[in-house]
Amino acid sequence: MMSNLFSTFDPSSSILNISLNWSSTLLGLAFFPLAFWAMPSRWILTWSLVMNTLHKEFKILLGPKNFSGTILFVSLFSLIVFNNFLGLLPYVFTSTSHLAMTLSLALPLWVSFMMFGWFNHTQHMLAHLVPMSTPGPLMPFMVLIEMISNFIRPGTLAVRLAANMIAGHLLLTLLGNTGPSLSMSLLSILIISQILLLLLESAVAVIQSYVFAILSTLYASEVN
């Protein structure tokens, strides 16, 4: 039962054994050309305000010397939030609900941070393994704990995003499947519940995109 239920979120349409559902990841790019030729609208101005706010916040975390690095994390936020929102539309594949997508974002970022930190700031990275004022007998254990917590960072980033996205979609699917067997009075309650859940999922889509981007920024700031 559970395997069949989760299989509804798997890519299904394909040509020549190439899954076409993953192409929905690039659907967000279709909205960007509008900002270059159309007159500024409220949507464009609102999105610009959000991007400027995120840019300032990431700049504070990364420091004034890494001003250009904020572009990476703002773009990361944009990619995730577009995929999260597009996944709420009917018949649109939600790529961010799969570990294949979220790990592809988290793992290269974490590997690049670690390589940059250990090659350029080796003493700084070693100092992070032992917190200040740690008693001598506890130092080996603290080093082990810090190393484990460091290694699981890409996994926690990926699982957090995928689990939060698929949980809401799963609840919407379960409630939607009960619709044909309900009476008209209960069906109206179900529709209202679905609308409220969609509003909640819209908030989750933004929050999880922000959490992924802000945690990636914090991990990058630690290696500087």
Rank of each mutant, 00 (worst) to 15 (best):
N52D: 13
L62V: 09
S14L: 04
F82W: 15
M101V: 09
W22H: 13
L126G: 08
S185N: 03
S41D: 10
W22R: 13
E146F: 04
V130D: 11
S78N: 00
A158D: 01
L62T: 12
V130M: 07
T70D: 02
N4W: 02
S19I: 04
M147F: 07
H55T: 08
V50R: 14
P90A: 03
T53G: 08
F32H: 02
L190E: 10
S23T: 00
E201R: 03
T94H: 04
M184H: 14
G155S: 06
V74S: 12
L170H: 11
L86I: 12
F31V: 00
F151V: 13
V159L: 08
R153H: 10
S19D: 15
W47E: 09
G155F: 12
A163G: 05
F58K: 00
L45V: 14
P131N: 13
L34R: 00
T122A: 01
T122D: 02
H55V: 05
L172S: 12
L62D: 08
Q123S: 03
G136Q: 15
W22K: 14
A106D: 12
L144C: 07
I60R: 00
L26P: 02
F77N: 04
E201K: 02
S112H: 01
S24P: 04
S221A: 07
M114G: 03
N150Y: 07
L62S: 04
M142D: 05
I152R: 12
Q123I: 06
L20N: 04
M165R: 14
L190Q: 14
A158G: 06
S209I: 08
I18P: 11
F73Y: 08
L61Y: 10
L197I: 10
Y91D: 10
L29A: 13
L170A: 11
F67I: 04
T217L: 00
M115D: 13
M101E: 01
F9M: 11
P140W: 09
T122C: 10
V159G: 01
T102V: 05
T134L: 09
S183T: 03
G28P: 05
L109T: 04
G87M: 12
I44C: 08
I148Q: 13
S149M: 14
